[in-house]
């Protein structure tokens, strides 16, 4: 029996959960999907339609509204005994509560699973993905966070799995939610986009990022950034791609004014096609790029927009 924890905002299921279901299906055991939130029945209905889900568990209570890790991990501990595996996406959501739940159960969790080799053998990245560790875990309950880009998304079906209500209310009152400032964007979500256009320190200013955004819009792409661009305040923190930011693996990744530090490469080197635009012909980013353009990004971006517009006509 496997318990997967759904990531959602009480209205919509986050797509990363679908990738976790695919990972869970490798174990050939029944999958239950836990939806913990407040007034989140809509999410449970979406979850019931995912292929491979045998049952949805709905824990609907005000104390789960913001999925505070103290309450969520207490809830998971209450449910844990029936399961061999507890899985969550390796996102800031999953990484926040899953290790806590594991410690409460006296189990060692595994972060960022890339591959499931056997029921107790997993592959995960270490050193910013510059090495891969194959590990064998002995824990009786295996708590894993799954890297979404390493598994395909599960399909949704017409049929629907039963939704079971869970009456456990674990309100630890250890923390309270104050506010959330979410980046509003009409563009696709960074970690799920087919095309990502990222800018680095070479963009020079927040103002200049508008040119890059224009290019992204020509391509229907999401916008990402290097740490240097975020630290300099050109773009918000949630744009950061890399070892300690978001992991992306789109069909096409275009790195503009990014040197290609290992910490950045860790977040995008599994992209299908990589394009680098940099004025320095020796920038390390060119070592992993399929296509490179050496030159001034302030000339190349407008030229790309022109060429793309011409193509569309």
């Amino acid at each position: 029996m496997i318990l997967v924890i759904a990531e959602h905002d009480n209205k919509h299921l986050k797509p990363a959960t679908l990738n976790v279901i695919t990972a869970a299906s490798k174990f050939n055991e029944d999958i239950s999907l836990l939806v913990a939130g407040s007034n989140c029945e809509k999410v449970a209905v979406q979850c019931a339609q995912i292929e491979g889900v045998a049952k949805v568990i709905l824990a609907d209570a005000p104390c789960y509204e913001h999925q505070l890790p103290e309450n969520l991990s207490a809830l998971i501990v209450g449910l844990a005994n029936s399961y061999h595996y507890i899985l969550a996406p390796a996102t800031t959501f999953g990484k926040n509560f899953l290790p806590r739940a594991a410690a409460l159960l006296n189990m060692a969790p595994i972060t960022d699973v890339l591959e499931i080799i056997a029921k107790d053998i997993f592959v995960r990245p270490i050193y910013a993905g510059n090495a891969l560790a194959t590990i064998q875990l002995t824990a009786a309950i295996k708590l894993l966070t799954i890297r979404p880009t390493a598994f395909a998304a599960a399909h949704t079906l017409q049929a629907s799995a039963p939704i079971e209500k869970c009456a456990l209310v674990e309100n630890t009152e250890l923390s309270t939610f104050i506010k959330e400032e979410l980046t509003q964007s009409v563009r696709p979500e960074l970690s799920a986009a087919k095309i990502v256009v990222s800018g680095g320190r070479g963009m020079q200013s927040a103002e200049n990022f508008k040119h890059l955004e224009e290019l992204a819009d020509c391509l229907g792409a999401a916008v990402g950034a290097s740490r240097a661009a975020v630290d300099a305040g050109f773009v918000p923190n949630d744009y950061q791609v890399g070892q300690t930011g978001k992991i992306v693996a789109p069909q096409l990744y275009i790195a503009i004014g990014i040197s290609g530090a290992i910490q950045h490469l860790a977040g995008m080197k599994d992209s299908k096609t990589i394009v680098a635009i940099n004025k320095d012909p020796d920038a390390p980013i060119f070592q992993i790029a399929d296509y490179g353009l050496v030159g001034d990004l302030f000339e190349i971006i407008p030229a790309l927009i022109t060429a793309l517009t011409k193509l569309k006509q």
């Binding site: 595994i110 090495a131 060119f286």
Partner: peptide
């Protein structure tokens, strides 16, 4: 320890790409 490391390997490397001359 709760897990044993069976092996540590290098990730697949990407093949060397090409430099192009223009946006077009």
């Amino acid at each position: 320890p709760a897990w044993a490391t069976l092996k540590v390997t290098s990730p697949l490397t990407r093949k060397i790409g090409v430099k192009l001359n223009s946006a077009e």
